[in-house]
Amino acid sequence: MRLDVLRAMNAARRARRAGVMVTRLADGDQRFVEAAAFGADPLADTLDSALRMGKSAAVTVDGADYFLAVQAPAPRLTLIGAVHISQALAPMARIAGLDPTIVDPRTAFATPERFPDTPVIAEWPDEALAGAPPDRYTAVCLLTHDPKIDDPALVLALGADCFYIGALGSKKTHAKRLERMRAKGFDEAALARIHAPIGLDIGAVSPAEIAVSIIGEIVAALRRKPLRSAAGAP
């Protein structure tokens, strides 16, 4: 592998841009193709389908063997609410390979002491997420029970096609939430993407158990179906 090719791939990953490393196995010839540049590549269709499937694979095209190493951005987890559940969820998320950030404008909650190893942004969601807006490789959990804080984050998450959106609260609370989102113009297909009540039904009681149920639900959303239209992302 050439160092400049590896550097291009690592740089794309840090910038959360998807792409595929193509290696011709007969002679080791290599290139890294970003998703935005698939159209100009001779293997365009093959690269597109590899990224859609999200799976690296050995393929044969016109008699030549290639290895396609798919690189999709590392999944991020944005937790709205520096609450008790988040204290359990953030470390579990890191172990599971998700990159957690906590957002809560209530400075009494959003303290480094409560979250020693996780970035905490003590601002309103629209300000906090302006620097690193959610994308299709981001999971968002709404955990504050407070529409003033949760709703702006939900609007961003729905608009960004996040692969997972979960919302804490009873069915009644969620029904009211859906009404507010309908009033903002979101259709039923968009609203159906919200997991509420949040988490798999495993009978979780404690904050840590609820965190386990949420992690399970996020992993299912990430792995069970390919991230739709990921290849079309710029």
Binding site: M1, R7, I95, G97
Partner: peptide, 28 residues
């Protein structure tokens, strides 16, 4: 913490820049 694939490739780049000879093995 477990090492992620991306950490491994970042390490490969850093090792090479530090002057070390490096090989990359990939399950194909």
């Amino acid at each position: 913490m477990l090492t992620r694939e991306e950490d491994v490739l970042s390490a490969a780049e850093a090792w090479r820049y530090a002057g070390r000879e490096v090989a990359i093995a990939t399950v194909v």
